[in-house]
Structure formats: C-alpha cells, structure tokens
C-alpha cells in the first residue's frame, strides 16, 4: 500500500507558510497546478486521507489541507478537466456518507456548492437530516446551487427532517423556482 501519510506531508510542505504568521500566501499558479495534478494522480486514497485530516475547528491548523481540497476543485473546473472533476465530486460526496463530524461535512458540502451536479444530490440532501444548523444551511445552499435536479430529493425528505431543515428546504425550493423564472 502506498504510504499516503508521507505523501500528504510532502504535499503540504510544498505550500508556503502563512505570511507574517497570519496572511494566506500566494502559491505560484504553475507550482499549485503541479501539486493539484500530483494529488489527483495519487487517487482516491490520498484525497480521502486529506479529508480525514481536516480538523473540526477552523482555526488555521489545517489551512493548507483546506486550500488543497478547495484548489483541486477549482483546478478541475475547466472544460478539458471534466473527468477529473467528476472523480473529485464523487470523492467529496462519498465522504459525506459515514460518521465524519458536522464541521468536516459542512466544509465538504461548501466545496460541492461550486461544482457539484445532480450526482451529489443524494449525499448532500441526506445532510438535511442533521440537527447541526451550519450543516443544514450549507446543504440547502448547495442544493439550491445545483438547481432543479435537487428539488425532488428535498421534497422527498421534507416530512422526515427537523423543523429547521424543513424551513431550509422550503427556502431552497423557493430560490430554485425564482432562479428559473
């Protein structure tokens, strides 16, 4: 089995440290692209291990991991990278299944907001069963962004989730309808 832990360490070491101990540095685009491609080429195991290393508290301890996971999503956004993007979407959506914490799931759902399609509707919609307000709000936002293909799943869940989630579903369906108008 490849040693993904040492790979992750080496990936993160390629990202410069914070400027002044605080400010997000600019990673030269070419360097970042090479890093994103290397991580993607490493396959699902490495990316899942990155996800597993996410902290519940967003206090900067794992900022490089968050940057990497977000950066790969944008990096695969061009028309020529559809296959890579589909793989990444499946990995992030797949990571929503199981007992990861609400904050970690919230981060993943927020990444999916910008690139997920109907294939992610199921796993994202399931997060509406949570009682975590941030996760519910993030799931509703992502489903709104996905659009009409998310409506059926939300309607199906409406009677099975808590009050906050029901409100979020109603709101999401309204915004989807308005966006279509």
């Amino acid at each position: 089995m490849p040693d993904t832990k040492s790979k992750i360490t080496s990936w993160l070491a390629l990202i410069p440290n914070l400027e002044g101990g605080r400010r997000f540095p600019g990673v030269p685009p070419d360097d970042a692209a090479k890093l994103f491609d290397e991580v993607l080429a490493g396959g699902k195991a490495g990316i899942v291990e990155l996800i597993d290393s996410l902290q519940d508290v967003n206090d900067g301890q794992d900022w490089k991991t968050r940057f990497l996971l977000h950066g790969m999503a944008s990096h695969t956004g061009s028309a020529s990278r559809k296959a890579d993007r589909a793989k990444l979407e499946a990995i992030y959506a797949g990571a929503l299944v199981g007992d990861r914490s609400a904050p970690v799931k919230t981060f993943l759902v927020m990444q999916l907001q910008y690139f997920a399609g109907k294939g992610s509707v199921g796993p994202v919609a399931e997060q509406l069963r949570s009682d975590d307000p941030m996760l519910i709000a993030a799931a509703a936002a992502t489903l709104t962004a996905i659009g009409p293909s998310a409506s059926k799943a939300m309607k199906a869940l409406h009677g099975k989730v808590g009050e906050r989630a029901r409100g979020a579903i109603d709101h999401a369906l309204m915004q989807i309808a308005r966006n279509l108008a």
Binding site: F24, G26, F67, G71
Partner: peptide, 14 residues
C-alpha cells in the same frame, strides 16, 4: 487574471 489559486474562506493576493 494573473493570480495564485484562491483560499475557500479568505480573499488572497493577486
């Protein structure tokens, strides 16, 4: 744009 890849939460440099 000529800019480094962005962070998900914070505006960065360009």
């Amino acid at each position: 744009a000529n800019a480094p890849p962005a962070h998900p939460d914070v505006a960065g440099q360009w």
